[in-house]
Amino acid sequence: MTTQKKVLKVLTFLVLLIFLTSFVLNFAHTTVPAAWFPKQMVLELSQNLRKLIKPPPCTCTHCISQRKVSAWFDKRFNQTVQPLLTAHNAVLEEDTYQWWLRLQREKKPSNLSDTIRELFSVVPGNVDPVLEKKSGSCRRCAVVGNSGNLRESSYGPEIDSHDFVLRMNRAPTVGFEADVGSKTTHHLVYPESFRELGEDVSMILVPFKTIDLQWVVSATTTGTISHTYVPVPKKIKVKQDKILIYHPAFIKYVFDNWLQGHGRYPSTGILSVIFSLHVCDEVDLYGFGADSKGNWHHYWENNPSAGAFRKTGVHDGDFESNVTATLAAINKIRIFTGR
């Protein structure tokens, strides 16, 4: 009770102070000479009071969602766009739906409404509460790509120190812990890139077509879907309450706002980065880009053709790299380039 009284007194004092400041500012503007009451001093006092009442978006040194740091960022970042598909935001606008259907050109896509209804009868239809930002916190996230520049980087302990660790596609950790860490909180996949995950890891399905959503239902129940355009796992061991769905509208938002139409659709890597901007306060990137010799390959294999996707036109790897480099230049993310 005593604490509540103290808080009430402080709030009352702040309100009175703001009122008096505003009064003095108006009075100084109309009657008092600048020598008696410098207007700049009153303005600064007023701004400081506003900061006291409206706390910063987070307690990190650089908060991602902080506005008016970069016009380039403010033009692209739309905090109202929801990254995850839920039972409450599952209706797609017609232009979004038609764009999404063209991504991988399904010949006879199933009815999306029926598919989503079936999907949320199996997996949770509400947003993962862990992903919801809390004011007054500093959520540090590591987004770990699959680049060979992670080899001999010794980033493992540093990666594991983050609150969230996001990985993608087939990335393994066993045997590579010293360089890539062992902790994973969220793993982004699509059916064709799925790998079995740890028991406490949340799977974020990135759906590029309607059958991807149907596959989630099938892979956690009947196991009837074994093939999309290539063979896919018939069954997965991921707990149903650990399955989240990347919103198709968010894919389009990344494509429109951040990639400005470059490539045919975004890569899982850039989808992971922009996703993290919306759920994290501070983001560190590891395992993105070529190694020190300019080679594009995965850290777990020697594959000379691993960078071939850069020439197909499906993803514009160079433009995506420019986006992350710009984000780093304005202190919205940090990029660790490895070896």
Rank of each mutant, 00 (worst) to 15 (best):
L244K: 06
A308I: 09
F250C: 01
G198S: 04
D114K: 12
F120S: 03
T220S: 02
P207R: 02
Y299W: 01
V201M: 08
Q98F: 01
H278G: 05
A28H: 03
K311L: 13
W215V: 01
N149A: 09
I225P: 02
I270T: 03
H297C: 04
L52W: 10
M168H: 03
T21R: 10
N302I: 05
T12F: 14
G181E: 04
P172H: 05
L197W: 09
N26G: 13
S161K: 07
L92F: 00
F255I: 05
E93A: 15
V180Q: 05
E44N: 14
R139V: 01
E158C: 11
T96G: 06
E320L: 07
Q260D: 13
K75I: 12
I116V: 12
A249T: 05
T21H: 10
H88T: 14
L131I: 10
N78C: 09
V238S: 12
P248V: 00
I116A: 03
K68G: 09
A35P: 00
M1Y: 10
L92S: 02
G125L: 02
T31S: 13
Y246I: 00
R339L: 12
Y190K: 08
I18N: 15
M203T: 00
T21I: 13
G261S: 06
V122L: 08
S305M: 09
R170P: 08
T173A: 13
L25M: 14
T173S: 15
N48F: 06
G263N: 04
A329E: 14
A28G: 05
H62T: 13
F194C: 02
K209W: 00
Q82N: 09
A325T: 08
F19V: 11
D163R: 10
I333G: 11
R105W: 10
L285M: 07
N257L: 08
T31F: 13
N48C: 09
V122I: 15
K311P: 04
P191W: 03
K237C: 10
H247R: 08
L205V: 05
P231M: 03
N89Y: 06
D163G: 05
Q260S: 12
K9S: 13
R117D: 10
T173L: 15
F250M: 00
P124K: 03
L52G: 08
S202R: 15
S153T: 01
K242R: 15
A90T: 09
R76Q: 11
Q82M: 13
V283N: 11
V174G: 12
V323F: 01
W258V: 03
L20Q: 07
W296N: 09
N322G: 07
L150V: 08
N78T: 11
L8E: 13
L205G: 02
T3I: 15
L14E: 10
P266M: 11
H315I: 09
T268P: 04
C60Y: 08
M1H: 11
F37E: 05
R264C: 09
L45T: 15
V216C: 01
L205M: 06
L119A: 02
V122Y: 02
K54D: 14
H162G: 04
D281R: 03
P248K: 03
P56L: 07
G313M: 05
P304H: 07
L92Y: 00
C63D: 06
K68R: 14
V283K: 13
Q104P: 05
D114P: 00
Y97M: 00
I245N: 01
H298M: 08
S182G: 12
K107M: 04
V91R: 12
